[in-house]
């Protein structure tokens, strides 16, 4: 085991994948300089960077042209490469919406299975860091609405490393939504390459009274909330789906069948967010198990303001998650 940061884990997964398969290449803005953590952490100075390790044929800086970056990756993936595209901020994905929706997602389907698109689009959600409305979106629900794309949103260094490696080795297009807020999170990570399958949730902690499905940075917030609630006598189970497409419905439904209560903590916007989908599926399939209405803890339908005073309260945090749990357990106001 080695102590690794979330960002370091992302770098390690990419390095190992590039060593294992010459068809893996990385391109994006400033990847040669590792500005957004292509290789992760501070090892660059002593170990050499990706450009030195893999050369300029496989590590390529791009112009600021998201549309062609995404389309080029799709075309390259259809013809033998396995590109990783670093799009830096998740809000920049919108610049390439046509390529994501009309080409990346549809090419295999529309051409009757002739195309495979082994490609990973990495982007970081810079929310909670005073970067304001043009850099702070959590847009994964928009892409969950597009069949053909797989979506990962890791909330720990181990998951970041294992899921990213699976994504790179997979023959479908994957969008990796990384939370900047978690970049510095550290834990002991298994040595060497490993894969974490898509569509398999992680039960972060087990409990009997309430199930919390937490996504991305809402996972550590839910863990914090659960410790407090334990002191109040409420036993919380936390499930991190890790991948939003495919989604591990079975684990969530089994948990709700036991606890009878569901809180979904999702940093995306409320309307048609990931939490809305989780709530809908549980309401459809596990209605009879429910002892209380499902509650969502999301970012309200607003843009992200610059001032930290305005921004900070918007995302799900330990306080708002704990309060939702108290509500569904009928203990609100008692704490």
């Amino acid at each position: 085991m080695t102590v690794m940061s979330y960002l370091g884990a992302i770098g390690a997964a990419q390095r190992e994948a590039m060593e294992a398969d010459e068809r893996v290449i990385i391109f994006g803005e400033d990847v040669e300089a590792n500005v957004y953590g292509t290789m992760g952490g501070k090892s660059r100075a002593d170990k050499g960077d990706f450009l030195q390790m893999f050369g300029s044929n496989r590590i390529r800086n791009t112009p600021i042209s998201e549309e062609v970056m995404v389309g080029t990756a799709a075309g390259a993936a259809m013809t033998g490469l396995r590109p990783i595209v670093d799009l830096s901020y998740s809000t920049f994905l919108y610049m390439a919406m046509d390529q994501f929706v009309n080409q990346v997602a549809k090419s295999r389907y529309m051409f009757g299975g002739q195309a495979s698109l082994p490609v990973v689009f990495r982007s970081a959600m810079f929310y909670g860091l005073s970067t304001a409305a043009h850099h702070s979106d959590r847009p994964y629900p928009m892409f969950m609405n597009v069949p053909g794309l797989k979506i990962m949103a890791p909330a720990s260094p181990t998951d970041a490393k294992g899921l990213l490696r699976t994504a790179i080795d997979m023959d479908d297009p994957v969008m990796s939504f990384e939370a900047c807020m978690l970049w510095g999170m550290k834990e002991e990570v298994e040595d060497g390459a490993f894969h974490i399958p898509f569509g398999v949730a992680r039960t972060v902690r087990t409990g009997n009274d309430v199930t919390i499905v937490a996504i991305s940075s809402a996972v550590p917030a839910a863990v914090q909330a659960a410790s407090r609630l334990e002191a109040e006598g409420i036993s919380v189970e936390i499930i991190d789906p890790r991948t939003l497409v495919p989604f591990d419905w079975e684990t969530v439904l089994n948990s709700v069948a036991r606890t009878g209560r569901l809180v979904v903590a999702d940093p995306a916007n409320r309307t048609c967010g990931a939490a809305a989908e989780v709530s809908a599926v549980v309401a459809e399939k596990a209605f009879d198990s429910l002892k209380a209405p499902i509650m969502r803890v999301t970012t309200p339908d607003t843009h992200i303001p610059f001032s930290p005073v305005l921004e900070k309260p918007l995302y799900p945090n330990a306080d708002t998650i704990a309060e939702a749990v108290r509500k569904v357990t009928g203990t609100s106001g008692r704490a």
Partner: peptide, 16 residues
């Protein structure tokens, strides 16, 4: 919309 796709195929040719 297919112009970037052709560009990607050219990148494959170049890298491989």
């Amino acid at each position: 919309s297919s112009i970037p796709i052709a560009t990607g195929a050219a990148l494959s040719s170049k890298v491989l």
